[in-house]
Design a protein around this nucleic acid. Sequence first.
DNA 1: CTCCAAGGTGTACGTCGTACACCCACTGTG
DNA 2: CACAGTGGGTGTACGACGTACACCTTGGAG
Lengths: 219, 219
Amino acid sequence: MVKTLRLNRDRVLRAAIELADEIGLEQLSMRRLAQELDVVPMALYKHVANKDELIDGMLDMIVTEIDPPGPGAEWKPAVRQRILSARRAMLRHRWASRAIEMRQAPTPAILAYLNSVIGILRAGGLSANLTHHVMHALGSRVLGFTQELYTPGDAREAPDMTPFPHVLEIAMAAAHENDSIVGGGCDDQFEFEFALDVLLDGFERLKDQNWTSTPIRYG
Amino acid sequence: MVKTLRLNRDRVLRAAIELADEIGLEQLSMRRLAQELDVVPMALYKHVANKDELIDGMLDMIVTEIDPPGPGAEWKPAVRQRILSARRAMLRHRWASRAIEMRQAPTPAILAYLNSVIGILRAGGLSANLTHHVMHALGSRVLGFTQELYTPGDAREAPDMTPFPHVLEIAMAAAHENDSIVGGGCDDQFEFEFALDVLLDGFERLKDQNWTSTPIRYG
DNA sequence: CTCCAAGGTGTACGTCGTACACCCACTGTG
DNA sequence: CACAGTGGGTGTACGACGTACACCTTGGAG
């Protein structure tokens, strides 16, 4: 029997991420994680302060998976690429977005990422003022995710939709569009890029007209 | 001693909403709610299937607080007004957005609300195809909220921000902008309307140029 | 060899959601 | 008036959960 290596923070975080990938964030418990590591629950607390701090650590590890910014390019494609890379990281770990929603303060890694995105915008010529509003407008989208209101693909055993004819029509439109997909769900990637581009184009237009939220003071 | 009235679903839901308003969603437990109603925990289960169903009921009640659509107007101001009304409802119950994020399927009341918004867009001349993408792009914003990455106003005892100069600069810009507010936090309402207008303007432009995601088939 | 700290263990407490059996007070029926 | 039935509040209990606290073990430094 191979006696597994000593525990350390890194091993704990990696195991937690892997476990969350498998069973989901809500099923992840300290006890389950300890069991996965062949260790008693309390052993984890020698490496992690508590569950919240564990999740913070997991998130930091995920966020550092995001590709670094490429070499000089226009701000719009640069930001676009960065955000789509973040999205790929989030798709690799579907629980991550929910975890970010749960935490209240951004972790250092998230701050570093935000800092770099802001840097791209500023270097691209957007004013500090506009950049500020842009970051708010992007919201969680800057990290590659948005919360959808309807879980896609649950068309089976859907409740009666006849009271909501407009919803039905829209759903049908989506189903027709990409009938290549058997389930008829939406193309999430397309929807994400669509919204992102609407926003980025809007930001560009505001930049070009020197938009600012603060009235210009003369004198 | 006044013997309080019999319990019923409505009283349970109202008490739950009031309690969540006071102590927050994460502090709301079946036991705490029962105590508030001078009743034993299990009594609640005669009126509510389980905690998830309780939250669904609370949400349905909140969503029906949203103002009905006003009389005929342009689609853009009509949708704008509807969404800002939803936002007001969400601000009255700060826990609601988190609750919606937690649920997986939209409740009937939410479906009805979405249906009405879609109806406004369709009546305004947007194609079913464009409307579909518009609804996705709005995401949770259609219900009046977005998840912010940074809890605003926590400037006190902030961690060291010197590693993130761009973040700092943006935060300073925000503080300068509305120095009327002592804390220097962002004007959330402004940020919300800013992002909403960027999106709505973008949608209008796409509508005007008959944008569609499906290639037009000839013949 | 000895000592000490880092790290794994065992037990225990207080919380949670909720299954299940109970019982009681009311109501409609004869 | 008797009585059964049922809707609704009660009590107990179980198996999760996070984690405080005291304990023990081990491996490397001196």
